[in-house]
Design a protein around this nucleic acid. Structure first.
Length: 419
DNA sequence: TCTGGGGTCCTAGGACCC
DNA sequence: TCTGGGGTCCTAGGACCC
C-alpha cells in the first residue's frame, strides 16, 4: 500500500500560516513578475478565479477588496515544504518527495486498516507546520493520487481516503473524471473527450493493445495502475538532476545586448550555484531568448543555442563565460526580448569528473574561489559576491505583493504587536 | 499596460555499425 | 518480380507532472 500526502492549496496555505486573519477568505498567489495566478485558496476558486489566469484579468475583483494577493515567495514555500516533509518522514518508514507540496510514503509493516493512521499524519503536520494536507492510501501510486483528491473533495473523509478492496476501488473509478487521473494530461483528455469517454473506469475498459498503440508504455502503466497493478515504483533516493535551468520573463521588453548580457550572466551564475549544490558538474550550456509571444504585432524570434564545454565544470566563472558566448551567437538586434533562460545539461557527479591533461582551467583555484563565494553568499545573503559580468544591479522583477520571508531571514521574522 | 517556471520520460526516425 | 538482418546511438518533438 502507498500513501500520498498532498498539501492543500499549498502556496496559499503557506501565506495563511503567518496571516491567520486570512483563513476562510479568498487568497491567491501570483507567478514571478506578478504575471498570473499560480495558487488559490478554496474561496478564491469559488469566485471563479482560474489556475494560470493572467493577473490583470482578475484585478477588478482584487481592487474591490474581495481577494488578498501575494507575489510568489519561494523562500517561504521551500522552507515550509521542508518542514512538512520532515514531519512526514518522522511518522512513516520511508518517503519519496514528489514535488514541493507532495510526497508518497511507504506503509510496509503497518497494521491495516490505515485510515486512522492517515488522519494522524494529517493532524500532526497541521499541528507542527500549520499546513492542511490530504492523505490518500491505496495499492498503487496512481490510485493513491485519486484517493488524495477524494480526501480533499469530501469533508466527511476527515482528510484521509483509504481505498483497498477492489469493489470499493471500482465504485470510485466509475465516478472519477478521466481527465483528473495522474498521467492523463490535456492532450489525451481532449482525445478521450472526443471519444465520449468520461470516467476512469471507461478508460480501464479499453483493450490493452489499443492503449499501448495510442499512448505508448506510459499510457499502459497508468491503465495497469488503475487496476491495482503496481508499475510506478517507490524511489526514496531522488535521482541526480539531468538538467538545471533558470529562466525569467522580463517586466518590459529588452532590446540591447548589454542588458541581456548582464541578465544571462546572472542566470548562468545562479544555475552554477544550484549545480554545485548538487555536487555535480555539467558539460553543456544552453541559452535561449524569446520575444513577447502575446504581441502579434511585433516580429517574433525564439532561438536556442548551445555550447559543449571542453571539459565538465561547476565554476560560475566558466559557465558564465560560456553562456555569454552563446548569447552572442543568439542575439539579433531589432527585436524586443521578453524572456531569457540558461540550461545546464550533460550533468555528472563532481566526484567522477574526467579531467583533461591539457586543461586550460586551473581547477583548484576555481574550486577554492567558488567555495568562498558560496560560503559568503550563504552567510551574508544571496548576491553579496557576484561575477563581474552580472553588474551591480540584480535582475529586477515585479513583486508588488511580497510577504516577508518569515522563516529564512532574521530581518523578516514575524512581528507580534502588543496592543 | 499586464500573460510563470522547472522538470521528466518516451518515441520515431536518421545515421551509423557489422 | 526480385533488392538481408540485426543492432546501437543520438536527437527533436511530444507527452506528461507540479
Amino acid at each position: 500500500m502507498y500513501g500520498l500526502c498532498d498539501c492543500n492549496n499549498f502556496y496559499a496555505s503557506c501565506e495563511r500560516v503567518f496571516r491567520p486573519d486570512l483563513v476562510g477568505r479568498p487568497v491567491v498567489v501570483l507567478s514571478n513578475n506578478d504575471g498570473c495566478i499560480i495558487a488559490r485558496s478554496n474561496e478564491a476558486k469559488a469566485l471563479g478565479i482560474g489556475m494560470g489566469q493572467p493577473f490583470y484579468q482578475v484585478r477588478p475583483l482584487i481592487e474591490q477588496g474581495q481577494v488578498t494577493v501575494f507575489s510568489a515567495n519561494f523562500a517561504l514555500y521551500g522552507d515550509l515544504s521542508r518542514r512538512v516533509m520532515a514531519t512526514l518522514r518522522s511518522l512513516v518508514p520511508g518517503i519519496e518527495i514528489y514535488s514541493i507540496d507532495e510526497a508518497f510514503f511507504d506503509l510496509r509493516g503497518m497494521a491495516e486498516p490505515l485510515d486512522g493512521f492517515g488522519r494522524t499524519i494529517g493532524r500532526t503536520i497541521r499541528r507542527n507546520v500549520g499546513i492542511p494536507v490530504s492523505i490518500g492510501i491505496a495499492p498503487t501510486k496512481t490510485l493513491a493520487k485519486i484517493a488524495s483528491k477524494l480526501a480533499k473533495q469530501y469533508p466527511r473523509l476527515d482528510g484521509c481516503c483509504y481505498m483497498r478492496r477492489p469493489e470499493d476501488i471500482d465504485k470510485v473509478l466509475r465516478k472519477f473524471p478521466l481527465q483528473d487521473v495522474w498521467g492523463i494530461g490535456r492532450r489525451y483528455g481532449r482525445m478521450f473527450d472526443r471519444m465520449g469517454l468520461r470516467t476512469a473506469r471507461q478508460f480501464v475498459d479499453l483493450p490493452q493493445e489499443w492503449v499501448r498503440a495510442r499512448m505508448g508504455v506510459a499510457g499502459l502503466r497508468t491503465w495497469s495502475e488503475l487496476q491495482g497493478v503496481e508499475c510506478i515504483t517507490f524511489e526514496q533516493m531522488p535521482p541526480r538532476k539531468q538538467q538545471i535551468t533558470l529562466s525569467r520573463s522580463f517586466p518590459r521588453e529588452i532590446h540591447t545586448l548589454e542588458e541581456l548580457d548582464r541578465i544571462v550572466a546572472e542566470f548562468a551564475s545562479m544555475c552554477a550555484e544550484k549545480l554545485r549544490g548538487e555536487q555535480s558538474v555539467c558539460a553543456e550550456v544552453q541559452c535561449y531568448l524569446y520575444t513577447n509571444r502575446h504581441r502579434e504585432d511585433q516580429p517574433q524570434r525564439c532561438e536556442t543555442e548551445l555550447r559543449l564545454l571542453p571539459e565538465p565544470t561547476d565554476s560560475s566563472l566558466e559557465i558564465v563565460r560560456q553562456a555569454r558566448i552563446t548569447l552572442r551567437q543568439l542575439f539579433q538586434p531589432g527585436y524586443g526580448y521578453k524572456k531569457a533562460g540558461v540550461i545546464l545539461s550533460r550533468i555528472t557527479p563532481a566526484s567522477e569528473l574526467q579531467g583533461s591533461l591539457f586543461s586550460p582551467l586551473d581547477r583548484g583555484k576555481h574550486a577554492r574561489l567558488m567555495d568562498v563565494m558560496d560560503t559568503v553568499n550563504k552567510r551574508l545573503g544571496k548576491g553579496k559576491i557576484v561575477v563581474a559580468a552580472q553588474g551591480t544591479e540584480p535582475f529586477h522583477m515585479n513583486r508588488e505583493h511580497l510577504s516577508p520571508r518569515y522563516t529564512t531571514d532574521w530581518k523578516e521574522l514575524l512581528v507580534v504587536k502588543a496592543d
